[in-house]
């Protein structure tokens, strides 16, 4: 694959940081030529930006074993069970039940060390600014209106697991067009009434 590991990962990180800082803002990630076979180019870029031998990860989805082997062979990161993994990659096409189960099992950290919680990288169909959800909280001036395809059920599960701040899970969402949005644990999500 053709990429510049030093500068491309820097760019991916800055974009992810910007999205984590401004929850609900949607940014477009770059593509790499010759993407990996079993996962999207965006997921791959996130993996090489975040993973190394010091952290563990878990992959859920079709071909998860191939993706796990691939990620660990290029990043030296260790594969771990969901409950222990620092980063959980949920690939395109995983059904809502499985996503909820993953959120249920993911590590939310401890009161002494809330940073030890998991970050979930979730592939969704589409991210947009259509009216579905209202984001408020740190990083957001008044509110951000967003739509996350297929989020109806897992949003509630997220709220359930994140209710005891500072414990909670942070999300990095990626859609089919490699658009990126982050939801840190501090973001409050309300469903907008459909008129």
């Amino acid at each position: 694959m053709l990429m510049d590991r030093v500068h491309d990962t820097q760019e991916v990180f800055r974009m992810t940081l910007d999205c984590m800082v401004k929850p609900g803002v949607i940014q477009e990630m770059m593509y790499i030529s010759e993407p990996p076979v079993y996962c999207s180019s965006a997921m791959f870029l996130q993996a090489i930006t975040l993973l190394d031998g010091e952290v563990s990860f878990h992959v859920i989805g079709q071909n998860s074993t191939q993706v796990e082997n691939y990620f660990s062979s290029i990043t030296f990161s260790k594969v771990a069970p969901i409950e222990e993994a620092n980063y959980i990659f949920i690939l395109q096409g995983v059904d809502s039940q499985m996503i909820q189960a993953a959120i249920q099992q993911a590590n939310i950290g401890t009161l002494e060390n809330p940073q030890q919680s998991a970050t979930i990288l979730l592939e969704v169909e589409q991210l947009s600014n259509n009216e579905q959800l209202k984001f408020t909280g740190p990083g957001i001036q008044e509110m951000h209106i967003v739509q996350i395809a297929g989020s109806d059920q897992w949003i509630a599960k997220r709220a359930e697991r994140n209710r005891e701040y500072p414990l909670g899970i942070d999300f990095i969402l990626i859609d089919e067009k490699a658009r990126l949005m982050c939801i840190p644990r501090t973001t409050r999500i309300e469903k907008l009434e459909v008129l």
């Binding site: 992810t16 984590m20 800082v21 909670g168 644990r185 501090t186």
Partner: peptide, 9 residues
């Protein structure tokens, strides 16, 4: 990234 998710911690 974790620091941003837990402001002030």
């Amino acid at each position: 990234l974790k620091a941003v998710a837990i402001p002030g911690y």
